[in-house]
């Protein structure tokens, strides 16, 4: 009896100390994430302006959708859901996310497969591949902005020398190519991340599978499609989801590479412009809330779909 009480006192003490240890971290997270998130959502339902956040008045869904009746049966819809600018930002973000993540996955897979074979100079390739990842996003945006300069850029020079184009392209300024420019920089910058995650998956495939296939003389393309790909699919999927969630909130590259461009303005850029440049604090908060909802729904469905096991040890 006494030992049991002693043990339960001990474990009660351990549980108490667990919460004591967690408290500082939880307080900081609440102050820096949960409370600001709640305030952002709240501001979206008010008429808050940037200098008078404490005097915000509740106005319901008017930032989202409002019908103004002009009388005589005429009227107009206002608010985010009726704002063409917002929908264009949603469309830009989706286009950016789907295209960039697709190419990042394909290129990442190719690089991972190369890094997974043993050859002379593999260490060199691995090191080189890490370089784009190590370069700050802003720096990559500026580097590429310079390379894509319409008059002095080396990219136009290369393409003209190769006779692929006849006249220089204004990559970041022209409406037709601005989004392509943004995607190019993003794909260049984040493919290494994709490659590393897929490589981690590839390295878990047991080597004897390949040896057996080699002995049986299985065609390598067939081997890849029937054996390797299904085995690394979980790793690829996780990498795709992580990148997609990241791409949906893209801000830096767009803001620096193609400022004030309707063709590339993403949801994050739209929200920040309204918050701090256009003096529409409440409207920007509503846009932030919608972006949060989209990302949250995707995250929850991902966790649910994969039934992610957090308590992995049990």
């Amino acid at each position: 009896m006494t030992t049991r009480t002693a043990i339960s006192t001990l474990s009660r003490q351990r549980i108490l100390s667990a919460w004591l240890f967690l408290a500082p971290m939880l307080v900081v997270l609440a102050a820096v994430a949960l409370y600001p998130l709640a305030r952002t959502i709240y501001f979206g339902f008010t008429d808050a302006s940037i200098d008078f956040t404490s005097e915000a008045q509740w106005i319901g869904f008017r930032n989202y959708l409002e019908y103004l009746d002009y009388g005589d049966g005429e009227g107009e819809y206002f608010g985010l859901l009726a704002d063409e600018g917002w929908w264009s930002a949603v469309w830009n973000t989706l286009r950016f996310t789907v295209t960039s993540v697709f190419f990042e996955t394909v290129f990442g897979l190719v690089i991972a497969l190369v890094l997974n074979t043993s050859f002379k100079g593999r260490a060199l390739v691995r090191a080189a591949v890490l370089i784009p990842w190590a370069i700050p996003t802003i720096v990559s945006a500026k580097m590429w902005a310079w390379m894509m300069h319409d008059q002095f850029g080396i990219l136009n020079d290369m393409l003209i020398r190769l006779h692929l184009i006849s006249d220089p392209i204004a990559w970041t300024a022209s409406p037709d190519t601005a989004m392509i420019a943004v995607m190019m920089v993003d794909i260049w910058k984040t493919t290494p991340f994709m490659a590393l995650l897929i490589l981690a998956g590839l390295q878990m495939v047991p080597a004897d599978i390949y040896e057996a296939a080699k002995l049986d003389g299985v065609n390598p393309v067939r081997l890849f499609r029937k054996v390797t790909l299904p085995l690394i699919m979980p790793a690829v999927l996780v990498a795709v989801v992580f990148r997609a969630l990241d791409a949906l909130r893209v801000f830096d590259i767009v803001y620096v590479l193609t400022p004030n461009n309707d063709r590339t303005r993403t949801m994050s850029v739209f929200a920040r412009e309204n918050l701090f440049d256009f003096d529409k604090f409440a409207y920007g908060s509503a846009a932030s809330t919608l972006l949060f909802l989209i990302v949250a729904l995707l995250t929850i469905s991902f966790i649910y779909a994969t039934r992610m096991n957090v308590e992995a040890d049990e």
């Binding site: 600001p36 305030r39 952002t40 949060f292 990302v295």
Partner: peptide, 15 residues
């Protein structure tokens, strides 16, 4: 860690 930074921006600005 999945929070879009923009989602907390206006609340953080106030804090």
């Amino acid at each position: 860690s999945m929070f879009p930074q923009i989602a907390v921006l206006s609340g953080l600005f106030e804090v």
